[in-house]
Design a protein around this nucleic acid. Structure first.
Lengths: 343, 343
DNA sequence: GCCGACCCTGACAACGTTGTCCAGCGCCGT
DNA sequence: ACGGCGCTGGACAACGTTGTCAGGGTCGGC
């Protein structure tokens, strides 16, 4: 900028005024300065600007896995709103690792983002307290945060799971398997709660061996699918080996608690002559094209992202009302998988 | 930091030393300073650090559409490598709009990223020349850039399309429709070239009305699918209305040139009793579970992203060799759609 | 016991920008 | 014609950090 001023033969502040479109510069002068800027290829250094002004016009987004279509849709929603506000979005992914989440969030804070949208991977967010105290706005997305008072935008996980499970029950399935993510993940726990509630509401017993939670890689999920459908031992090596060894009654339907699990389960079931009844949480792009079509409990991830971002910008606009928890409804999309008669 | 120094009763520089883990600070002093840092919740301001040191340890990624699974996979690859290098990744999406791409890239430059990976939306990247001149490393991804000498990492689009088309030809289809993206997009043009080459190599004529390029929304693609399969007029309102009105011979197979088109085409075909033969560019998560299974020309988007990021970090490591163009192979995954007999 | 050397610490300037303040000039009103 | 007001342009400090350099303290060696 100094060079530009020298080349144009004007003062430093005049160039600054032109760059910032401030009033108080004659059009002729402004044009001359702009010409020099283009000629020299000058670009304002936003870091220095931030240092001086204190505002960055950027917000951070910490995702769970940037490659997951669900996360992509979240980020699309967040980005759209950020863009409306003329804000740059900085995105990173935590790979479902608490340390990585922390590291990433703090790196974004060190860049002095104005606000942060976090899809929590870890169970503790106290590390954000000093940041929040010094003005950072935080909104949790998809799962609530812990250890800090902040807004959260969630889906109605329990309600959705209840509806999905009820759909299977209504189609005559008395024994329904639940396959979910790691049990400490909030969404999984809530969906499991919804499943239990639906079973209880229908007066159906739940055999704990019908519930499989753990990693969502295809191999693990495939094993869980086969075990639930054949009624084998639970393989968890629990404290009661005799119970673990005793075969459970095989289930006739499956509720898969997120898109990765659903996908892995479908792959595991691909070899079978007729697919058992299956309802999944999260819609899949091709769900309608499978035969039979796949019934799902659909979230609206883009709306989740948009809502979280709106909440964040409300906070940046000095909305100091107490933290809110927004819960977005889910939608049961019936595509006929429920109509498969029970075994 | 000043506050920390005051609270600890030490000099500013000593705090700086502790924060940067420089040697030359007695352990006792370091421990005291660290205690004060934790107590006050101090976090270094990386913007100021950047201003002083000139290096940001961050790279930018400009995607075409952050919500597209293909883009997600690209970014996963780039992020993995960035992380290996201890680098923060800043991501934005251009929504396939040249102005937005430019705006985003320049915003990232203003944040003084060390390097930039760009999936070009626009056809001109001269605007990056001044940035490159002042030390920015640039790598183009998925499509080459124009107006600037820079590395590019691409898939073998023409070769992949050739292989996919040849697969259909080998299964006895003499009339194959091509549905692609906007024709000015490099990947679409290359894939169309591959399609033409395969047809020519097999001695088959190509009716221009078999080729549909345009927006990839489901409605447009759906119309194209129906037109190609029934042999209706091309509807482009070209300069030769009589030719446009003359019905073309219906095609018996379709080559869809990217994941969005494939998806939209599958949706359009969902109502039909038997799906016409179809080969798509880009793999789909559920492609194997459709019946019949979907044959695709698969790219490896994560490898594309990783390769581009590696190239970028090579450049940041002062590799000054002339710009390279890396072309990654594609893989034909046969899943039986080609085995549908021609109509 | 004294001197030298080494290690640790702190003062200071500078990175590029913007906000504040002031000076100069032109125009308008009387 | 003169004075005042308003508008343009420039000098300067400050944002928070790090690199440079110099000074002080301590320990060891002679």
């Amino acid at each position: 900028m100094k060079d530009v001023a020298a080349a144009a033969g004007v003062g430093l502040k005049t160039v600054s005024r032109v760059v910032n479109k401030e009033s108080g510069v004659s059009p002729a002068m402004a044009a001359r300065v702009r010409a020099v800027i283009d000629e020299l290829g000058f670009r304002r250094n936003d870091s220095a600007r931030l240092l001086r002004t204190g505002s960055t016009a950027s917000v951070g987004l910490v995702l769970e896995d940037i490659g997951d279509p669900f996360s992509s849709a979240l980020s699309r929603g967040v980005e759209a709103v950020a863009r409306e506000h003329g804000c740059l979005l900085l995105t990173g992914s935590s790979a479902e690792d608490a340390d990585r989440e922390r590291e990433l969030a703090l790196a974004l804070c060190a860049r002095r983002v104005d606000g942060l949208v976090v899809v929590p991977a870890g169970g503790d967010h106290e590390y954000l307290l000093p940041e929040a105290a010094s003005g950072l706005a935080v909104v949790f997305l998809d799962r609530p945060g812990a250890g800090i008072e902040a807004d959260a935008v969630l889906s109605d996980n329990a309600g959705g799971a209840r509806a999905g499970t009820a759909h299977l029950i209504a189609h005559g399935h008395p024994r329904i398997g639940f396959i979910g993510d790691l049990p400490h993940i909030h969404t999984c726990a809530e969906r499991l709660r919804g499943y239990r509630e639906a079973m209880r509401a229908a007066g159906l017993p739940v055999d704990e061996r019908w519930i499989a939670t753990g990693p969502t890689d295809p191999a693990t999920v495939g094993r869980a699918v086969r075990r639930l459908l054949t009624g084998g031992p639970d393989g968890n090596g629990g404290p009661d080996p005799t119970a673990a060894e005793r075969a459970a009654e095989p289930v006739t339907a499956l509720f898969t608690a997120n898109n990765r699990v659903t996908l892995a389960a479908l792959q595991a079931l691909a070899g079978l002559p007729a697919r058992p009844a299956l309802v999944g949480f999260d819609d899949l792009e091709l769900a309608a094209l499978l035969s039979p079509g796949l019934t799902v409990v659909a979230q609206d991830p883009e709306a989740l992202g948009r809502t979280a971002a709106r909440l964040l910008f409300d906070r940046l606009g000095h909305d100091t009302s107490p933290p809110r928890r927004v819960e977005l409804p889910t939608r049961l999309i019936v595509r006929g998988s429920g109509e498969v008669p029970p075994a």
